[in-house]
């Protein structure tokens, strides 16, 4: 295994520092929302988590396409890494959303388009992870994963539209009209700073984790190759 690159070490430290600052901003800088109170603060990391989740799934679909085109192993490793990380982040987004929904909507869960789509997306990628575990032949596993990552990603907008055709109560934070009626709110400057800083922090966090996970993937690949050569 190659030594840990310097840039990665720097990125690790940067992520840690940013995380501290973001947490500080959320707790001490962003004002308490007038109606919802403290629970609104979950919003900053909730959206950041969901954002990282969607970025990862998008990356995996693109990388899956490149894998099918080029057939090089590194693209498969990257795609798997992105989905594994995003799967966890997306789960955190769903759970933190639930924590917010309990006081704001008076229920943990409601069958609203975004919540339902989120649940289905999580299930799609759970199926992806199961599929990977079910195939022994590495070459076949890589092809199947790439195909399923693309299929899954294409179905997300269709799922969202199909559920959206029914009504929604999820607040539309950017560009919503009657957001306040749904537990939405308009952000004042310090809130916006905290919000976009959280997004940035989590994006950096994602890149850092992805890098680590790809290095781990390369190692896994080496172990697997060794195992095949022994058999």
């Amino acid at each position: 295994m190659a030594e840990k690159p310097h840039l990665l070490k720097i990125l690790d430290i940067l992520t840690l520092v940013l995380m501290f600052i973001a947490t500080g901003l959320v707790f001490f800088y962003a004002p308490v929302e007038k109606i919802m109170g403290l629970v609104q603060k979950v919003f900053y990391f909730h959206v950041a988590n969901a954002w990282v989740g969607m970025v990862g799934f998008t990356v995996a679909a693109i990388v899956g396409g490149i894998y099918l085109w080029k057939g090089e192993k590194k693209w498969d490793i990257a795609g798997f890494a992105a989905i594994e990380i995003s799967f966890v982040f997306f789960l955190i987004a769903i759970v933190s959303g639930s924590i917010w929904a309990r006081p704001a909507w008076n229920t943990w869960w409601t069958w609203d388009p975004r919540l339902t789509t989120a649940a289905i997306v999580e299930l799609i990628y759970a199926a992806y992870l199961l599929l990977r575990r079910g195939v022994d032949d590495p070459d076949r596993r890589e092809r199947f994963s790439a195909v399923y990552a693309i299929f899954g990603f294409i179905s997300i907008p269709l799922t969202f539209v199909s559920i959206r055709l029914m009504r929604t109560i999820h607040p539309v934070v950017v560009g919503g009209s009657d957001a306040a009626a749904q537990g939405g709110f308009s952000m004042i400057a310090p809130m916006k700073v905290t919000f976009f800083f959280s997004l940035f922090t989590f994006s950096v966090f994602f890149v850092d984790l992805l890098w680590h996970r790809i290095r781990l993937g390369v190692l896994e690949n080496k172990v697997e190759e060794l195992r095949w050569s022994v058999d």
């Binding site: 299930l123 199961l130 399923y148 899954g152 799922t159 539209v161």
Partner: peptide, 12 residues
């Protein structure tokens, strides 16, 4: 495997 793979994609 088939229902697990197919159902989430067939939701729409």
């Amino acid at each position: 495997m088939l229902p697990i793979l197919l159902f989430p994609l067939a939701i729409p």
